[in-house]
């Protein structure tokens, strides 16, 4: 091979970058999907769990727009139950801890909802953690 030294160095760098996730996870405990602290005094969410997992952010977005722009604030869930469309008063009423629920998933999925720039998470505030 001509210029073997340079080409091999290039290939080694390329391979290291390409396999980054493999060696980054070496020696780490095997991945578990995040453990969530579920509400104790209720059995189900606003809609079925499967749907909530995938679409809760869009639901929140709809709520926000409905409340702030249209001034309506009652949401009727799939089972006819009615909820006040509020992030802090509804979601966080059942899911009392942001850290042990929302954040667990979000850290793993590397999303940082900017909602908490303004909204406050109840339990953390009560405990003076924030």
């Amino acid at each position: 091979m001509y210029d073997a030294g340079k080409i091999l160095i290039g290939l080694v760098i390329f391979l290291l970058l390409l396999t980054f996730p493999f060696w980054y996870s070496l020696g780490q405990a095997s991945y578990e999907s995040p453990e969530l602290q579920l509400p104790e005094d209720s059995q189900e969410c606003i809609r079925d769990t499967e749907w909530m997992r995938k679409n809760h952010m869009q639901l929140l977005d709809d709520w926000r727009d409905t409340v702030v722009r249209e001034g309506k604030s009652v949401y009727t869930g799939s089972e006819g139950k009615q909820y006040d469309m509020s992030l802090q008063k509804t979601c966080m009423d059942c899911h009392t801890s942001k850290k042990k629920f929302c954040d667990r998933c979000h850290n793993s999925a590397s999303v940082e909802p900017y909602c908490w720039d303004c909204h406050v998470a109840p339990e953390e505030v009560a405990n003076g953690q924030q």
Partner: peptide, 29 residues
């Protein structure tokens, strides 16, 4: 996409994501 292949996700990838979504249009951004 490295957020799917690393745990914990290195901060660098978080920054790239934040920067990319900096306009904060809609949810998910």
């Amino acid at each position: 996409h490295m957020r799917f292949f690393t745990e914990p996700v290195p901060a660098l990838f978080n920054w790239i994501e934040t920067l990319d979504g900096i306009m904060q249009v809609g949810v998910p951004v």
